[in-house]
């Protein structure tokens, strides 16, 4: 088996657990929609504020979703010594990382698809400049899944993991929030040209942290 086949095996396992437990579908996705609803309460929906700040709200919600998805990705292995099983499986640790990050990315993509429909319908956002919009979203999702998985394994097994993960992860992914929001704003307002530098930044972030994750996942899994 090569690296990607091994990664697909791990991602398949996580997604199969997800398909059976439906935690993303029944908890994380509704959570995202509730947050959108709460934003409408917090910011007056009648003056068009929501439409203007929709990209930022969208990505903040995705960040919250990332915290939940990452927490879930590692809590499924907390019981029955499943993490030991993973360690002893003989799979390459880079492949383990890629597989787990890919599963998180798929769950985030589902959340983003739902939230996109949400902001279009609830916040009256018109989607323009589809190419930079999609590319920015893909790059941001990969970046978030990679960093999330890296910090997820760092915090896995600790008693304080739920409270530690946000304080570690959110400052690191601050550039993703900034870049993705700016790319969305530029695309939506029809000036796609302004979106491309941000797409590049998001791409660099995604590649860099995927690389770091592949290197660091093994040693961190040993210690978790």
């Amino acid at each position: 088996m090569n690296l990607f086949q091994e990664a697909a095996l791990v991602a398949g396992k996580d997604l199969r657990i997800e398909a059976r437990s439906r935690v993303t579908a029944q908890q994380i996705l509704p959570f995202g929609l509730v947050v959108l609803l709460l934003f409408a309460f917090a910011l007056d929906p009648h003056r068009g504020d929501l439409t203007n700040v929709a990209p930022g709200l969208f990505w903040v919600t995705v960040l919250f979703g990332t915290l939940l998805a990452v927490g879930r990705a590692f809590s499924i292995e907390a019981e029955n010594g499943a993490r030991d099983g993973l360690r002893l499986s003989g799979l390459d640790s880079s492949a383990l990382f890629l597989g787990k990050a890919a599963a998180v990315a798929v769950e985030l993509a589902a959340l983003e698809a739902l939230l996109t429909v949400g902001v279009v319908i609830l916040f009256n956002v018109g989607l323009n400049g589809v190419a930079p919009l999609v590319l920015a979203t893909v790059a941001a999702t990969v970046g978030l899944a990679a960093t999330g998985t890296l910090y997820g394994v760092l915090a896995a097994g600790l008693r304080v993991r739920e409270t530690l993960l946000p304080v570690l992860l959110l400052p690191v992914v601050a550039p993703v929030l900034l870049g993705a929001t700016k790319a969305w704003e530029a695309s939506i307002s029809g000036v796609s040209g302004d979106a491309w530098p941000w797409v590049t930044l998001l791409g660099i972030f995604a590649v860099l942290f995927t690389g770091i994750g592949m290197l660091a996942f093994g040693p961190l899994l040993e210690e978790s």
Partner: peptide, 17 residues
């Protein structure tokens, strides 16, 4: 590992803001 990851993040934060 966490310290090095944070350190790598600093230039990205810098350029983005």
């Amino acid at each position: 590992i966490a310290a090095l990851v944070a350190f790598v993040d600093v230039p990205i934060v810098h350029f983005s803001v």
